[in-house]
Write a protein that binds this DNA or RNA. Structure first.
Length: 655
RNA sequence: GGCGAGGUAGCUCAGUCGGUCAGAGCAUGCGGCUCAUAUCCGCAGUGUCGGGGGUUCAAUUCCCUCCCUCGCUACCA
């Protein structure tokens, strides 16, 4: 029996679950179910990633210990799958003792193999900042923040000899087209690998700076870098190295990730596996982002779609269908409730739901609710079967490669063909003409195809699919379904079996009342149907700020000052940069490197009063220290300096 | 600036190793049916397949160039 292991990334517990996490989980669940129906033994893994500096910071902010904090957020993620109708086989946490042991085993193994070595890292440590600075970051040899000379510390860190495997990885990717897909991400990784030398990966953090992590087995003064720890969940969950699961499911691993974590999965992870003497995973499947009204949605922005509300409002099946139907594999997609409602009505209510309802109703009207026996096959029956065969094959081929949108598109060709077939054969006319044998055949052909559709939809909408099958008098039994044969088998539905009287799985829905403002032209049918005699209310002013709001104290963190530009010149080694000296009423003028050379000439700036961010962390830009940021206002057309309406003393505060 | 991916009907997209390849769904208009969830079926469109140039008997599909969008990166602060 062939095997299929599918994973989501383990989600980082520094924020609550949102649409992106929901999608990844739904996609993993659906492909897992698909492969199960295809006759494979499947294992579906998800979980949470809980170590690292960011978690420490977040827990401090919440006034909790890292573990308490991680427990709390992890529980939210654990609760996500059931809401979505997803059934992972395992939920792993990187704080699980078994995982920790495995990570240490692998570290030890790679260490003994000689692929982990001591190296001296960074060196310039500023005690004020509690961090290292690279040569590049230092300003005249001083800490840019504290203006003190950092101490040179030869901090020993452990490095993974990743560079050693660069050639191997390139070759492996070239030889296995399915290793990273879709191809655009494969190309991206290849160009990354081929463009320059891969550096070794620093995989340790000294405990003096971070203790919230897994201790290195060969040096108790260090903990493991969070990515090295996290990626290993994929095998620790299988009880590497001796577990039954590991023997069964490795290397049949198919990872699903969003495009932001492509590099760790496409570069770190395979080279880690290679170094540990393990075979690389089978495929890395990269999907895009869900945008919200074409604006980026992420943990750090406030415009997060709440998966639970969508499920509560529309049902898990419809929500899953929409996400899997709408996002082209690898590309970004836009989430709007209008689009969701549009799909739900057009595809599910009108096409599929109505098909079920009309077919069941006719079975009751003409055959007392029992599946009729088919008689002689007509040409039109054969044609429909052929179309159905191709539709189902198309579904399977695409779903197997994670292209769920195309798979569903293909299956819907059958759904639409069934509606058409009913119209063409006109059962109501056959009934009137007492052609019962033909009528029985027609209805049987429709019902049997509906069964096939329902079975294929199980991975996408398990709940709805099972209800459809109950309505057809054939409750879902996973063991009895052989999806690979479904396109061709015929006559599975038994004649004489009672079917449901009606089907109301997908009622039409309207957009919930406080209709969100639609900046773009609405595409949902409701937009037109809601038209009344009254003129539409004047469009509300577009929400100006999609970003999350901040507290006043956050604003206060900014030290905005007015200053006069004393001089400005082009940066000698940069096209876009100007080096300007701005008087802020301090002893010395500030040197600010501004990316304005393409918009302003140096002469335009000299003598002007500008607004600058005075407490921005200083940084060297192309060799020149920049101690602030000059603010401008811009639209699509112009860029203008931000200034006060009248003269203000240099150093005047903006508040 | 460099690298990469794209620009195809109002919208979302499919497609072409150059020759019925100008398509699907949604939206729009008209017509039909009545089994059905005001559902379904049929018909009708519009498109300079981003602009320009080139190769060819023939290009949306190949080459060059320009413009625009997005991603990564950088001299983005």
């Amino acid at each position: 029996m062939s095997r299929f292991f599918v994973t989501t990334p383990i989600f980082y517990v520094n924020a609550k679950p949102h649409l992106g996490h929901a999608f990844t989980t739904i996609l993993a669940d659906s492909v897992s179910r698909f492969h199960a129906l295809m006759g494979e033994e499947t294992y579906f893994l998800t979980g949470t990633d809980e170590h690292g500096d960011k978690i420490v910071k977040a827990s401090e902010a919440a006034g909790q210990s890292p573990k308490e904090y991680a427990d709390q957020i992890s529980a939210l993620f654990r609760g996500l799958a059931p809401i979505l109708g997803a059934k992972p086989n395992q939920f792993i946490r990187t704080t699980d003792p078994d995982h920790i042991k495995t990570v240490q085993k692998v570290l030890q193994k790679v260490y003994e193999a000689g692929d982990i070595y001591f190296g001296e890292y960074g060196g310039h440590y500023c005690f004020g900042c509690e961090r290292f600075y690279t040569e590049k970051e230092l300003v005249d040899g001083m800490c840019p923040d504290h203006k003190t000379k950092p101490e040179y510390i030869a901090e020993k860190n452990y490095f993974f000899r990743m560079s050693k495997y660069q050639g191997w990885l390139i070759e492996h990717i070239n030889e296995h087209p399915e290793f990273i897909r879709p191809a655009r991400y494969r190309n991206e990784v290849l160009s990354l690998l081929e463009s320059g030398a891969l550096e070794d990966l620093c995989i340790s953090r000294p405990k003096s700076r971070l203790t919230w992590g897994i201790e290195l087995p060969f040096d108790s003064d260090f903990v493991c870098y969070v990515w090295f720890d996290a990626l290993l969940n994929y095998i620790s969950a299988l009880n590497y190295p001796r577990g039954e699961r590991f023997k069964k499911f490795w290397p049949a691993a198919n990872h699903i990730v969003a495009k932001d974590i492509l590099k760790p999965h496409a570069v770190f992870w395979p080279t880690m596996l290679k170094a540990a003497g393990l075979q690389p995973y089978q495929s890395l499947n990269v999907h895009g982002y869900w945008l919200v009204r074409d604006t980026k949605m992420s943990k750090s922005l406030g415009n997060v779609v709440e998966p639970k509300r969508m499920v509560d409002t529309y049902g898990a099946s419809a929500f899953r269908y929409f996400l899997l139907r709408e996002m082209a594999f690898g590309s970004d997609a836009s989430f709007t409730e209008e689009a969701l409602v549009g799909r739900l009505n057009a595809d599910l209510a009108n096409d599929l739901g109505n098909l079920f309802n009309r077919a069941l109703a006719m079975t009751h009207k003409y055959f007392e609710g029992k599946v009729p026996s088919p008689d002689k096959e007509f040409q039109e029956d054969a044609e429909l079967k052929h179309l159905g065969l191709e539709a189902m094959q198309g579904f399977q081929a695409n779903f197997g490669e994670f292209r769920t949108a195309r798979a569903l598109e293909s299956l819907w060709e059958l759904v639409r063909a069934l509606n058409k077939y009913i119209d063409q054969t006109a059962p109501w006319t056959l009934f009137k003409n007492k052609q019962m044998a033909r009528l029985g055949t027609v209805l049987y052909v429709v019902l049997e195809h509906m069964r096939k559709v329902a079975v294929h939809l199980w991975p996408v909408m398990p709940e709805a699919s099972e209800k459809m099958l109950v309505q057809l008098g054939m409750p879902f039994e996973q063991e009895k379904i052989a999806l690979p044969k479904e396109p061709e088998v015929w006559g599975v539905l038994e004649s004489g079996v009672a079917v449901a009287q009606t089907s109301n799985l997908f009622p039409r829905v309207e957009l919930p009342e406080p209709t969100p403002p639609a900046p773009k032209e609405a595409t949902a049918p409701e937009a037109k149907k809601n038209k009344t005699d009254k003129p539409l209310p004047k469009e509300a002013p577009a929400p100006v700020c999609p970003a999350e709001s901040i507290e006043f104290t956050d604003f206060q963190k900014l030290d905005l000052r007015v200053g006069t530009v004393l001089s400005a010149e082009k940066h000698p080694d940069a096209d876009k940069l100007l080096v300007v000296q701005v008087s802020l009423g301090e002893e010395k003028p500030r040197q600010i490197v501004a990316g304005l050379a393409d918009r302003f000439s140096p002469e335009e700036l000299v003598g002007k009063q500008v607004v600058v961010v005075a407490n921005l962390a200083p940084r060297k830009l192309r060799g020149f220290l920049s101690q602030g940021m000059v603010l401008v206002a811009k639209d699509a057309e112009v860029t203008r300096l931000l200034t006060a309406a009248g003269p203000v003393d240099d150093g005047g505060k903006v508040a």
